[in-house]
């Protein structure tokens, strides 16, 4: 559609509507978070964010995020690669399963793991005898985070790999290049930006995950509380300064991710212009 240039009233109505909407639903709450966090003064705010438990929660969030990103990068590339470069039975089933975490509620995801690895599971005695703790421990939190974020990277890669086709890989293979060389020299440069973009989306989602993690965490202070869980605990304990200060940490992390995303989009589209 051509950009509308001559219908002034429509343009301004739409701009105003968007601005009001964003202010009410986004800027106002953000401003409120900052205001509440600072209500009792800068010292109280600093004390809240340097609190031992806040730091532990932040560190656990970062840890779970790193795990999720690492695992999903490997899995995402492998899944996207096999779905686009090979023809096999059950391709549709795999493709559908990848999307499952998006459609299933995170709470259910948490419960599934609880049932699989918890006390009532037939696996529990084995895990227990090897001293492996999953439920109400860090591994459970990592598992839950991986589960809810696993479509993000492969979903970014699939369209790019589909559009590329297999000709370049075939050409490289005919010249005697091995699978790893083909991936490194031909495929990877092609999916680089999509991959980084997927990593950013995955990171953002992993940091904010609440539902599935909440079921598996057990809310042990300083042990299994991620930032979102910790914020809820503080809030329910009427520690508003603490809750909003911790929230502001999460907001800062989100803003960093957002800036990264913008930068990636710019770089990616620039490179596309030159080498389409």
């Amino acid at each position: 559609m051509e950009p509308q240039t001559n219908s002034g009233p429509l343009k301004w109505t739409l701009i105003t509507a968007s601005a009001v909407f964003l202010s009410v639903f986004l800027l106002l709450p953000l401003a409120y978070i900052v205001a509440t966090a600072l209500r009792q003064g800068m010292d109280a705010y600093l004390a809240a964010i340097t609190d031992k438990y806040t730091c532990k929660a932040a560190w656990l969030t970062i840890q779970a995020t790193l795990w999720a990103v690492a695992v999903n990068t490997v899995f995402g590339i492998a899944a996207a690669w096999c779905l686009t470069k090979f023809a096999f039975r059950g391709k549709k089933i795999i493709s559908t399963c990848i999307d499952l975490p998006v459609t299933v509620s995170p709470i259910i995801a948490g419960l599934i793991y609880l049932l699989t690895f918890g006390r009532q599971s037939f696996l529990y005695p084995y895990l227990d005898s090897w001293n492996i703790k999953i439920i109400f421990a860090v591994p459970g939190i990592v598992l839950a985070t991986i589960f809810v974020t696993f479509p993000f990277i492969s979903r970014e890669l699939l369209p790019v790999l589909t559009a590329q086709g297999t000709d370049e890989e075939e050409a490289a293979a005919l010249m005697g290049a091995g699978a790893f060389t083909i991936f490194r020299k031909v495929t990877l440069p092609h999916i680089k930006w999509a991959l980084l973009y997927g990593v950013v989306l995955c990171t953002a989602r992993a940091m904010g995950e609440f539902g599935a993690v909440s079921v598996l965490s057990g809310h042990l202070w300083g042990k299994t509380n991620t930032l979102p869980l910790y914020i809820e605990l503080l809030y329910q304990g009427y520690d508003f300064t603490g809750a909003f200060a911790a929230s502001s940490l999460l907001v800062v992390m989100a803003i960093i991710i957002l800036a990264l995303r913008l930068w990636l989009e710019r770089r990616g589209s620039k490179e596309l212009d030159i080498r389409k």
Binding site: D167, E168, E170, A171, A172, L174, K185, V186, P189, H190, R275, K276
Partner: peptide
């Protein structure tokens, strides 16, 4: 082998 759409490595 010369491919129909050449299949040149576009990032090289």
């Amino acid at each position: 082998f010369v491919f129909q759409n050449y299949a040149l490595f576009r990032y090289m």
